[in-house]
Design a protein around this nucleic acid. Structure first.
Lengths: 117, 117
DNA sequence: CAGCATCCCATAAGATACTG
DNA sequence: CAGTATCTTATGGGATGCTG
């Protein structure tokens, strides 16, 4: 899948603001390792969501930018982020929710037969 | 994250059509193991995206349904699915794209200085 | 029927060192 | 600066058997 890897959606999001060089990308995503950054970028490139431009200079300068397809992905991605933000899910609300109750509802049935199909 | 586990989004999707019992859920998702089904359901329950109702009968009958929060999640999720379908990404277009070209663009620069910040 | 526990394997991901 | 290679660990996930 496209969203299961840890960093893919974040790369798309960060690049949605404009093209970035490798180092800038890494600094935009605290915690990502160089290995995972490269790997994620290669996969997204293979999926044609971003393009990679190599400037033949020393030291090397590589610029990443979203393709048309990648830009089309930004909107549904933001829809997801908006939902998360609106419901504090990526923040700490869920943690607090987890802490609180959360028991399964027990339904006392009269019959011993299966009530559902 | 909420989307990284393999089955979470599918559970939400399947339940978006209405409440289901455990076995019905499993049959709705070919390939899911009982273990992962239970695990996924527990996590989504902890995140308050679905609720679990236990009917006290023999044999046991457990019904899962989306909470308000879970239902709010359906829309952005479908937006994502729509994008995927529109771009054949979950199908085979990507595979064909991967097969074809996909080389990084080489930009021939005159200078040896860094052209980008 | 629904769920839990256990064992095992595949993959994701982090750390580190090295190259042009 | 950008990238590769290698090693190690953490996690996800499948298979199976057992319980009320």
């Amino acid at each position: 899948m496209l969203l299961t890897p840890k960093w893919t959606s974040m790369v798309i999001y960060v690049l949605s603001f404009g093209p970035l060089r490798t180092g800038q990308l890494q600094r935009s995503m605290p915690g990502i390792s160089k290995k995972m950054l490269t790997q994620t970028l290669r996969e997204l490139e293979a999926d044609q969501l971003l393009s990679r431009k190599v400037h033949q200079v020393v030291p090397p300068a590589v610029e990443y930018s979203l393709t048309e397809l990648g830009q089309k992905f930004v909107e549904p991605l933001l829809a997801l982020y908006d939902w998360a933000e609106a419901n504090f899910v990526l923040l700490d609300k869920v943690e607090r929710n987890r802490a609180a109750s959360g028991q399964a509802e027990i339904v006392e049935d009269e019959s011993e037969a299966l009530p559902l199909s």
